[in-house]
Simulated assay, not measured.
Amino acid sequence: MTTTLEPETPAAVEPPALGLHTDLSNEDYHADKTSLSSSGARKLLPPSTPAHFRYEQDHPQPPTKTFDYGNAAHKMVLGNGPELVVIEHDAWTTKAAKAEVAEARARGAIPLKQHEMDMVNAMADAIRRHPLASALLEPAYGAPEQSGFWIDEATGIRCRVRFDWLPSQQDGRLIIPDYKTTADASNEAMQRDIDKHGYNQQADWYETGARALGLGDHTAELLLIAQEKKPPYAVNVIGIEFGSRVIAGNKNRRAIETFAQCESTGYWPGYADTEPNYLALPGYAENRDKEMYL
């Protein structure tokens, strides 16, 4: 008689304990689907929707070149992250090159061309020459990639944060540096990026997380270290003004409540699903057409 063995059901993975973790891997941090992160909170709110958030949680996106550049720069600047592997082929279209790229990705490494490796090395050198950025990321006084988990008291939702860098001295006002790579680190461009990417929400989330984790003396401030990806790899250290962080705090509160509601009901809505959305022309178009047709 032939016995058919049923496939084993994978054992449930316990989420990380509450508190600060200094040695949790990036993979284990992101594997916790029971908690809400800053990027998740931003994905729950317009112009995105809970449906988009849920889909991305269930269907992780493959790495892109932009993603690779950012992670590689993080590794060189912060000193922690995946292995960087130079693929010694002029073009990655050959069978041999594709095999080497696939093998590197399979073991969690980031494949780079030689000029890309030179770029991230030059970026790290530029950070070390910058007086303020180098002081904020001084290895003798801090450590990279630390994770924290806490409970939002108002909803009971688990929240999480992964700090790029945490100072080891935490008995006073806590400064939290966060490293960003960008095409343009000027003040004007970064103002647009703060709005586009919700960096003010990230600042509020990280500062809230630091307080919840008992770091510092209950005062914390996130500073963005923005660096351009082309020579001279210019660096701009940026703080988020108070009013923008207040707005961000209200947005994060809405996101947490939305997450709690969706978790409770199991329903992750997209756009309008009970009433139609009535839309006007964009402001510039309405102003243009009013002059001609009204």
Rank of each mutant, 00 (worst) to 15 (best):
T2G: 09
T4E: 14
T4S: 11
E6M: 11
P7V: 04
A12G: 00
L18G: 10
G19I: 02
L24G: 05
E27G: 06
Y29T: 12
A31N: 11
K33T: 15
S35Q: 02
S39F: 00
L44T: 05
A51L: 14
H52I: 12
R54A: 12
R54C: 02
E56I: 04
P63T: 13
T64L: 04
T66F: 14
A73R: 01
A73E: 10
G81L: 10
I87F: 12
H89N: 04
A91G: 03
V101D: 09
A102Y: 05
A104S: 13
R105W: 00
R107A: 06
I110Q: 03
M117N: 08
A126D: 04
R128K: 15
R129H: 15
A133K: 09
P139D: 00
P139I: 02
Y141N: 09
Y141S: 08
Y141Q: 07
G148I: 04
F149Q: 02
F149N: 01
T155Y: 05
C159S: 01
L166K: 00
D171H: 09
D171K: 02
R173S: 05
L174F: 06
Y179H: 11
N187H: 13
A189P: 09
R192I: 05
W205M: 08
E207P: 13
E207D: 07
A212R: 01
L223S: 07
Q227V: 13
E228R: 10
K229N: 14
I238F: 05
G239I: 07
E241N: 14
F242T: 13
V246N: 08
E263Y: 02
E263Q: 13
S264R: 15
G266T: 05
G266K: 01
W268A: 06
P276F: 07
N277S: 15
A280R: 14
A280H: 14
G283H: 11
K290D: 15
L294I: 03
